[in-house]
Computed example of a mutant assay.
Amino acid sequence: MSYLEYNVKHTPTGIRKILYLNWPLTLLLISVAGVGFLMLYSVAGGSFTPWAEPQMKRFVMGLTVMLIVAMVPIWFWRNMAVVAYALSIVLLIAVELVGTVGMGAQRWIDLGFMRLQPSELTKITLVMLLAAYYDWLPANKTSRPIWVLIPVVMILFPTFLVLRQPDLGTSILLLAAGGGLMFLAGVHWAYFAAVIAAGVGLVTAVFKSRGTDWQLLKDYQYRRIDTFLDPSTDPLGAGYHITQSKIALGSGGWTGRGFMQGTQSRLNFLPEKHTDFIFTTLAEEFGFLGGFSLLGLYTLIIVFCTATALATRDRFSSLVTLGIALNFFLFFAVNMSMVMGLAPVVGVPLPMVSYGGSAMLVLMVAFGIVQSAHVHRPRAPVT
């Protein structure tokens, strides 16, 4: 009996699916979201509006969606991978044609009740497609050039569309998550060495192109690089965000100034305090211990996702779970590095904590797929 036949035959039903949920992972997600509600309440000056209350409603909706996705057998999501990826590509193209402009970028589609950011959806559908591809591909073909080129195209096409919006942060995440999943699937390390060498050449070309007719990045993206290298060169302009962020981080000390006592956020020195820079508000109010505790919750989420991946018996479940865990890690690693001055400011939100509808809902769908892999994995020897 094949794994798929066994899995279909032994799919749990009814109340057993609820019992088989990865409840520690669910509680961890609720805990992280709770931290987000607390911080959004704080940055609004002790008010549930305009950020905390909508975020709570979105999380409840997202949690419901996660449970629904978890109840659907994992093989269904494997079969839907191509459709989901194609839909995300169509939505990215729709952004180009009828997208809503905000803060100088065209990244959203206005659905009336919410603004959908298709690039967030693409982060997950790309992982699904790559996992399905490597589940279908025989292991002995994984590193053959023609079979390496196909997933590279799968990664580069949506990355190009996202970069045009422009959204450098999400483009980087797509490349990193796609490349990471290829590595996890067993693609030979020599390909990655070649990519790193090409990356060094590309970085050199980016700096050489500045101010020329063939400039590779937008002016504001170059300013972000300048700010990253030396924020003090323009402390009241391009370097303002990261300078204020570092002040907030440092002023928190070990235990913080106290809930709703952060001067940088309360006096509006801290920019984008409810989205990209919300971690600095947390660190200022709760100090190193608060920031480290949140990092601990994130780490436990990664651990439980990895445990699910190791417990599954089919390649798709394992790869899609690891890919979602990698995506989640990149989310918070890039954001924390960004606000601490360890990486350029690229506009990546802090997962489950920063204010935002699309990112929250897409992440909950992703964890629903992880839960589906956990619920529907075989729990008896295959005969």
Rank of each mutant, 00 (worst) to 15 (best):
N7T: 15
P138W: 09
G169M: 02
M103D: 11
Y3P: 10
A94N: 13
T383K: 08
W108H: 06
A94K: 02
I196K: 08
L91Q: 06
P166G: 11
I68R: 09
M61Y: 01
D219E: 02
G252Q: 08
I302V: 01
T321Y: 04
S318M: 15
A380N: 04
A197W: 09
L149V: 01
G347C: 05
L322Q: 12
T170A: 13
G186E: 14
C305N: 14
V320F: 01
L363V: 11
I225L: 14
L19W: 06
K141L: 13
G341A: 10
S209N: 13
F279S: 11
G341T: 11
F328S: 07
Y240D: 03
S245A: 10
F304H: 08
L67Y: 04
G178M: 05
L121R: 02
I324G: 12
W254S: 09
I30L: 07
F286H: 04
R377P: 10
S47H: 13
F328I: 14
A359Q: 03
V187N: 11
L126K: 05
A105H: 00
R78M: 07
Q165K: 01
F288V: 12
G296A: 13
V101W: 15
R78W: 15
A177K: 05
L97G: 05
R257G: 03
G180L: 06
W254A: 03
T280P: 03
L217K: 00
F207T: 11
F157K: 03
Q371Y: 01
L25F: 00
I30P: 09
S354A: 08
L175Y: 05
I18A: 08
I278H: 04
V320C: 01
V95T: 12
S372R: 09
G356K: 00
P381N: 04
V303S: 10
M61T: 07
V348Q: 01
I225Q: 05
R210Y: 03
